[in-house]
Write a protein that binds this DNA or RNA. Sequence first.
DNA 1: TATAATTTTTAGGTTTGTCTAAAATTTAAT
DNA 2: ATTAAATTTTAGACAAACCTAAAAATTATA
Lengths: 215, 215
Amino acid sequence: MTFSEENYLKTIYHLTWVSDADISTNAIAEKMETKASSVTDMLKKLSEKDLVNYVKYQGVSLTDKGKLAAKMIVRKHRLWECFLVEKLDFSWDEVHDIAEQLEHIKSEELINKLDDFLGNPTEDPHGDPIPDANGRIIKVEKQLLSEFEKNQIGICVGVKDTSSDFLKYLDKQEIALGSQIEIMEKESFDSSFRIRVGTKEITISNKIASNLYIK
Amino acid sequence: MTFSEENYLKTIYHLTWVSDADISTNAIAEKMETKASSVTDMLKKLSEKDLVNYVKYQGVSLTDKGKLAAKMIVRKHRLWECFLVEKLDFSWDEVHDIAEQLEHIKSEELINKLDDFLGNPTEDPHGDPIPDANGRIIKVEKQLLSEFEKNQIGICVGVKDTSSDFLKYLDKQEIALGSQIEIMEKESFDSSFRIRVGTKEITISNKIASNLYIK
DNA sequence: TATAATTTTTAGGTTTGTCTAAAATTTAAT
DNA sequence: ATTAAATTTTAGACAAACCTAAAAATTATA
Ligand SMILES: [Mn+2]
Ligand SMILES: [Mn+2]
Ligand SMILES: [Mn+2]
Ligand SMILES: [Mn+2]
């Protein structure tokens, strides 16, 4: 399996995670910053290899084989991110691009030993679940902070947007995974929030609140 | 720089390490298990990028720029081998192929943090020197066991052949880096050796002796 | 439902790195 | 110094992964 094939599978997997329906050629092209015609070429190839169910003009979905392959790539990506943060002291906004490279290293033994070395973590530095060696995922129920109401209290357990910009903003506001967050006020006009993080009280926009997972 | 370009540079570097003279197209082709015509194509490209000095029909050598690039790849290869052996508990005969992949991961910060994490080792699991971040190498003088004479005593500090077969043979004979080796007898007929490793006394062929570095 | 807009596919082309076969050059052997 | 052998380069082709432009199919709109 080539890097390119792996990247397509992973993209289809991620798009399916949020929508669940069949994925369109254009959705893949946009996410991968490539052209629709290139996507069509690749879908034919992946279909040939029984990694996706593809019907011309009708969108695409992963086969069981394709889904497992995609999960193994995601597993590698997230385990490497853990390694970078926990062992090499990278911050959570620096690891994604390096993990994009490391996720393509081919060795089952390597990834399983890395998993053990890290103490078999179930979540990566952004709160996303790590599939085990068989592709099983422990799904933790979590809500967006934006769906919370006044006086509710929760723990920050994940981020939806994992861009460096957003993560650095959270660092600045001292919001991290595990932080306790209390809703002090929800402004009805713009759906912004006044929240308490630890001892500090701050105001965050709805856009921020829509990218923080709370439990 | 592509994987392929990096592999060519590394190969030229390794061939130069042993012979020092200009490297022939065929020598590269043989080492990389590819065709001479492919090598010619690549040499033109590397020459265009000022990574090698290439004169048609006359062989090739690395420029300073090319040599530094090659050293950085070797640095990555050997640091990853250290990581695999020391942190993930791989044995020294299992790490080369995985390191062949890992050496192409692009991130200066990653490799320097890995270097620190490992305690800035100067040698990899096979006794080969690890270039530092500036490309400097600490060369340790070492001789082949085959050049030793009766009654001499030394410490095994490296292997010339790093094939899995050879390394497994050494494991079986309980010869490892750091083992003390004493020449009990040198057979003039076939240049085989009777040696003592620790408490055990064994006979090794000249071929084995020609692949063990002693200090 | 006919037409317009959008999406998707096809057709044909480019780049990278490989190959085979033939030509050019160098090296070795009379 | 020729000729023969080996090495190296060139010429032309191919697969992978991408592209642009045009055609086909689907979806939305009047
Ligand atoms: Mn990531
Ligand atoms: Mn992540
Ligand atoms: Mn190696
Ligand atoms: Mn090594």
